[in-house]
Every structure is written in structure tokens, then in C-alpha cells.
Design a protein around this nucleic acid. Structure first.
Length: 417
RNA sequence: GGGAGAGUGUCCCGAGCGGCAAAGGGGGCGGACUGUAAAUCCGCUGGCUAUGCCUUCGUAGGUUCGAGUCCUACCUCUCCCA
């Protein structure tokens, strides 16, 4: 691991965020001298960000922590045209209202990691719709387009692969890299931004921006990419049966979020602690040294720290405590996720199938039936073997709840009201 | 404008002689083993008021006792020619 003079690069390097830097020495010197401004682009096709976006957010976080100014760029303008790369569904074009709503949702996530404001190291949130929407095609071609060599654009991997595989590449998509390059230059012009960060797949696009900056304004700009994060077994991060692991508490509860991190594979624990928590490196080293069963301690720390960043310390501790009671003491913790249900329905006798579907543990009655056949269903920790089983008032525990379990890890409390 | 192909289970990829709720993967979920891990093995992976009924193979029609499969038109995409 090379030694950097700036806290910023040294921190990122130590924690495993760096894959590639365009001109490491020059950037290092600049960052050591004073605050620099950098940005990362996020698209806003969904109302929340998920775990996959966490890595770039953490880069912005560390940037601010080490005395620099981060910009979160929302792709409000590029989202308007829709992502052309998908087959048909992703071709849907979002309305301006949807985009605005998505932006608002995403903004709340950022405020948990970054301090926004007007100070020298306060974060900014920019929206490329601000300049892309008002672009004039002819002006754009003349001022920006002339700096791009089609010969060179064709040589980029993203393009080359498509051509080789004889897959279509639309003109719109071909232009995407130009728009992204332009974003960089525009941010440089407006905010003095000199660095763009992103995933390693963004390298080519970022370098384009650097080139454009040099040609248009004779500016020296930099690129920094992070490695693509997959789990040790090669799966992409952030996917479960229920879908993506969102950062919004209404989509994925803090408890579920905690559980996601708790179930990290052994081989990923040290890496994830460095990337997704803000614990000091010494502490992480200690945790990473744990072997065998002891590594579970490290996983709990990872889960709690990662959850605290997104949902706050109280929610994280709460989730940890709920998990401890549920898994280590076999108790029914009252802080498990719960679903209210009318008391008279329970009095009348609630079918297991119905109960599990309303609790959100299964999508259909058939799914519950199959789970029962797989010996995976329990009510108040008692195995259910018949799909005819009904839940009645007798099942309400002294705490006033009924515990539904699907498998060993998924629990939901029914609260008769 | 002319010609040749493609679109399959609402997570993805992909087989599919007129008898099809539709092969096989991946992913996911569950079970066993463990440590709430990995690896491995096993099961599940359209819906329902369920010995049956309903809905699914780009869209809409047609042929047929019966269509994912054959015919027609249309939509979308790819390739070749102009």
C-alpha cells in the first residue's frame, strides 16, 4: 500500500476504497495542500438508494471527514431520457414528478452521512438537470462535441464490447459518455470540482471528462475509482429474496438491515468493516483477527456499526438487542418487526396461511403451504405441520403477541388490536 | 424501401416433434450439517375456496377436439442489402 501525503487518499487507501487513480502524485499533492472538491454521480431511477450505493457514499463521507468538499450529483437530467441499455422495461421514461420525488427520497439518505451547507467543506447536492435541460443542441455540438473523437470513443470497452457482440448501441447511449464528461466540466466551472470518483466501471467515462476539461478549459482534473464490491462467493451485494436492501427504513426496517450485515460471509468481514463502518483501523484489525466462532463478534459489530450509520445509533442498538434475545436466548423479543391485526379476526380463528401472508412472510397461500411442507413454519416457536392450522386467542402470549417464524431467521410478531 | 432472424415461467439466462403449468441453469427461499458463516447434500421456486378450477411463452386475430409450437396482421429488437 503506497504512502500518501494527504489524509484523504491515505484514508481511502487504508480502507480499501481505491482501485485506480489517474495521476496519484499530483492529486495527492493537491489534496495535501488544501480542501479540494470532488463529486460522484448517482442516478435517481428509484426512490431510495440501496446497499450498492453505499460504497460511493462512504467515499464522500471520508472526503468530508478529511477536510474536503464532496458533491453528490443527482442524474436528474440523464434520468429523464431513460437508461437505454436494458431490454424493454428499463426503457420506461420517468416523469419529472417521479424524478423529483425520487430526488427528495435520496436526499434524506445523504443527510445522514454528509453535512450540507455553504462552508468550505460543506457538502453540496447538485442536479445535472440544471444544465442539461437547457442545453442547446447546436451550441453543445460546437462547444463540446468537437472535442470528442469518434475514433477514440469507439475504442472504449463499453462501446467496443457492444459492437463486437453485435448488440445495438443507440445514439443516445453513445452520447451518455459525452454528457457525463460534460457534467464534470460543468461542476468544475461552477464549483471548482477537480475530482470525480466512481466504481471501476466508470473509469472510461471519468477519463473522458478529464480530457474534455483539459481541452475546453485547460483544467487539470482527476479520476479515482473504487473496486467493484462483490461477496467472497462472487454475488453482487445488496440482493435478497425481498429485493434490494434499501437504505430507507420504511422499505427495509433497521432490524432487517442489521440482519443483512450480520449474515456477512466470514471472508468479507474485515473488508466490509473497513468499507462500511467508520471504526478506527486498529479496532478493525483486532476484530478481523478473530477466527472460527469468534468471528461472529466481529459480524455483530459490523452489523451494529453499519446500521448506526444509516438508521442512527439507537435503532442499531435496538436491532442488535432484538437479535441477541431472539437468537441467543430464544426469547420472543417484543421489538421484532410486527404487524397489527384486528383482535376479532384472531378471536374468530385465523388460518396460518392467511396469517403468514398478512405478516408479509410469504407472498401467497401456496408459498406458506410449501414452507409448511418444508418444515419451515412455526407459531410461537412450535412447528406447524398442517396448512389447516388456525391461530386463535389461545395463541396470544402474555405479552399480547403471536410470533410467526419462517425458517430460523425470519420472525414477525402479530399484534392483535 | 427489400431480405433474414429474434421476443418463453413478471429476478435473470435459456430448451421446447400440435397434448404444456412448459426441460435445464443461475439467483433466491427452506431443510440437514454448523457459528444466524462458507462449502456440501436435499427440497421448493404460477394463483385459488384444490382429487378440480383459473392465468401464463411480444400484441391481436385465425386454423384445430386441442396452439408456446401452424397461419395472418401488428409492435419491439438484431443482422444483411438499398
Amino acid at each position: 500500500m503506497s504512502a500518501y501525503k494527504s489524509d484523504f487518499l491515505q484514508t481511502l487507501a487504508n480502507r480499501g476504497f481505491i482501485q485506480q487513480i489517474s495521476e496519484p502524485e499530483a492529486l495527492d499533492a493537491l489534496a495535501a495542500k488544501g480542501p479540494i472538491t470532488a463529486y460522484i454521480g448517482f442516478d435517481c431511477t428509484a426512490a431510495s438508494l440501496h446497499v450498492g450505493s453505499l460504497l460511493p457514499i462512504m467515499m464522500l463521507y471520508w472526503m468530508q471527514q478529511t477536510g474536503h468538499r464532496p458533491i453528490a450529483l443527482m442524474g436528474g437530467g440523464t434520468t429523464r431520457v431513460g437508461d437505454p441499455s436494458g431490454k424493454d422495461e428499463s426503457r420506461r421514461i420517468l416523469t419529472d414528478e417521479t424524478i423529483a420525488a425520487n430526488l427528495a427520497g435520496i436526499r434524506t439518505v445523504f443527510t445522514k452521512f454528509l453535512k450540507f451547507g455553504d462552508g468550505p467543506t460543506d457538502a453540496l447536492m447538485a442536479n445535472n438537470a440544471d444544465w442539461l435541460n437547457t442545453l442547446n443542441y447546436i451550441d453543445f455540438l460546437r462547444d463540446v462535441g468537437r472535442h470528442f473523437s469518434v475514433n477514440r470513443m469507439l475504442s472504449f470497452d463499453s462501446v467496443k464490447l457492444r459492437l463486437e457482440r453485435q448488440q445495438e448501441l443507440s445514439f443516445l447511449e453513445f452520447n451518455y459518455m459525452i454528457l457525463q464528461a460534460y457534467d464534470f466540466v460543468e461542476l468544475h466551472k461552477r464549483n471548482g470540482c477537480v475530482l470525480q470518483m466512481g466504481g471501476s466501471d466508470q473509469w472510461g467515462n471519468i477519463v473522458n471528462g478529464i480530457d474534455l476539461g483539459r481541452r475546453m478549459m485547460n483544467a487539470q482534473l482527476f479520476a479515482l475509482t473504487s473496486p467493484l464490491i462483490t461477496t467472497s462467493s462472487g454475488a453482487k451485494m445488496g440482493k435478497t429474496a425481498a429485493g434490494a436492501v434499501w437504505l430507507d427504513a420504511t422499505l427495509v426496517s433497521p432490524y432487517e438491515y442489521w440482519q443483512y450485515w450480520r449474515n456477512t460471509e466470514d471472508g468479507d468481514v474485515a473488508r466490509f468493516l473497513k468499507l462500511f463502518t467508520v471504526l478506527p483501523l486498529g479496532e478493525i484489525e483486532r476484530l478481523a483477527a478473530l477466527k472460527g466462532q469468534d468471528i461472529n463478534e466481529a459480524k455483530k459489530v459490523l452489523a451494529t456499526e453499519a446500521t448506526a450509520l444509516v438508521h442512527g445509533r439507537a435503532a442499531a442498538d435496538n436491532a442488535a438487542e432484538t437479535a441477541r434475545r431472539t437468537f441467543e436466548q430464544g426469547e420472543t423479543s417484543l421489538t421484532l418487526p410486527s404487524v397489527d391485526v384486528p383482535r376479532k379476526d384472531v378471536a374468530a380463528g385465523l388460518g396460518v396461511l392467511n396469517a403468514f401472508v398478512t405478516a408479509g412472510l410469504a407472498a401467497s397461500n401456496g408459498e406458506v403451504r410449501r414452507a409448511i411442507a418444508n418444515n419451515a413454519v412455526a407459531v410461537n416457536d412450535a412447528r406447524i405441520t398442517s396448512d389447516k392450522h388456525t391461530i386463535g386467542e389461545a395463541d396470544i402470549t402474555p405479552d399480547g403477541v403471536i410470533k410467526l417464524s419462517l425458517g430460523k431467521k425470519q420472525h414477525v410478531l402479530l399484534r392483535p388490536r
